[in-house]
Design a protein around this nucleic acid. Structure first.
Lengths: 258, 258
DNA sequence: CCAAAAGGTTGATGAAGATCAAAAGAATAC
DNA sequence: GTATTCTTTTGATCTTCATCAACCTTTTGG
């Protein structure tokens, strides 16, 4: 599972990408930021960091982990019980800010692992305070991002607590699709990347692997979606949304990018 | 259920309690704040608001709800599916800051309802920005509180996704006990307030009412805890902690109070 | 290219927990 | 103080989902 548990700090290549030229910023998903804000972020950014699939970015219980922004690729946050049962708390996509949850000098309450090769911006832990001190507007943005992430977890908790297996899977597929689609141009035709194994889906939804497989197959055979070659295609969003009890366009809101 | 859905804004008595004299601030659970920070909060606070048990503070989907700090009493955040299934996301105790999740001008993604008579400090929605603008340190505190709340939801998600009914209940009892105990002096002997019905427990843990009752009875008959007269007593924390797979003192961290 | 590992698929069986039904206490309302 | 509603409790039955056991397919490493 943790095939690549290399200490992140050991693999430090990469000249820092200038934040103003960050390719993410040109996407409509992300807010425009003022020059001063960009300079601040730039000045706090220590380096870029590349990790292969399946690496541990943050170990559960690790103290004083840095902060990261996911620049490219997918990852997930998770917690485990001592007998190995694992719950995935949230999937992380480009633009997600990672590590706010742990108070300074505190142990990480959850681990973070990559689902694909991934590129991160690395910030020192105390940048969190620097951001607030030097730019109230960016501080506000960090609060917003944190609150937004909480609301994603809220959604998952509703699923896991109160939706049936079918409903949970429909919900996850829609939500992930929408998030991933907001990061690319087309989506409708070519689908979106889907780097999760069925075990990840199971661990995210509180289901067993076997039951996840059966449910996924059932929905696919009914023509609601298709997963293949690491991509997800929506075949019948209406039906999925009905199953998931999701209404509204659900387009992710325009968001800040730290 | 929503016996008291009075529009909050209609019931507006109460002279504002001066923040510096807020009785909560003398508890060891809360950080000391600088005079300037207190003045800021004081200047943003609009009024006190009293609500009886079972009132709706924020309606699911309500737009532009104000911000609140819970000063006294208990409440909870929840979401519902259109057929009525309800998931409680989190319980709110004195000192909890409420409403950060919804972006300005946005609909509340969850409702908030009181579990007891409760007293709230009311802030205008844009205070969130004012806090960041006028006091970076308080802005940082708001981020911290938001992140902290997320970590509570993370914990619940782990329970609901991966723990058995027994384990979930043990976990909830311990966590609530610790939170409530941090707000009073004794706790060991006199227990802590426990205003939840079994339906609340069920809705928080993703269980049915019947199964919740049976599990609760089982643990109580085994002598692990006792609930009576609206109070919770821990009879065997060790055993509960073992069931819950919880280690460490779990004393809630010292936290800011807005 | 082959072996080994990882991931996906399917059927059979079992158990945790949901649902149904009914009743007994408690709390509240008038 | 009696009726009504809310909450707790318990038994019986049923369903969803977990577990067990194979087997197949695809990917990866050497």
């Amino acid at each position: 599972m943790t095939s690549n548990a290399a200490t992140p700090s050991l693999r430090a290549p990469a000249a820092v990408v200038p934040c103003a030229q960050c390719p993410l910023r040109s996407l409509p998903l992300f807010q425009a930021h003022e020059a001063a804000e960009l300079e601040l972020v730039q000045s706090l950014k220590r380096r870029d960091m590349h990790l292969p699939v399946g690496s541990t970015l943050i170990q559960e219980g690790q103290v004083d982990a840095p902060l990261y922004t996911l620049q490219k690729g997918w990852a997930f946050r998770f917690k485990t019980l001592s007998d190995g049962r694992r719950q995935i708390l949230n999937f992380l996509l480009a633009g997600d800010f990672i590590g706010v949850q742990q108070k300074m000098g505190d142990a990480a309450a959850h681990g973070v692992e990559t689902l694909t090769d991934a590129l991160f911006c690395v910030f020192q832990r105390d940048s969190l305070w620097e951001i607030h001190r030097r730019s109230p507007s960016m501080g506000f943005n960090v609060t917003w991002l944190t609150a937004h992430e909480e609301s994603l977890v809220d959604d998952t908790l509703l699923s896991v607590g109160r939706r049936s297996a079918e409903e949970r899977i429909a919900t996850l597929l829609i939500l992930l699709f929408k998030r991933a689609a907001a990061l690319q141009a087309d989506a409708g035709a070519s689908g979106v990347p889907f780097p999760l194994t069925q075990q990840h889906v199971a661990d995210a939804l509180g289901l067993s692997l076997v039951h996840t497989n059966k449910t996924l197959r059932k929905l696919e055979r009914r023509g609601l979606h298709h997963i293949g070659d690491g991509r997800l295609f929506m075949r019948d969003v209406k039906a999925l949304a009905r199953l998931a009890d999701l209404y509204g366009d659900g387009r992710p809101p325009v968001r800040p990018l730290v």
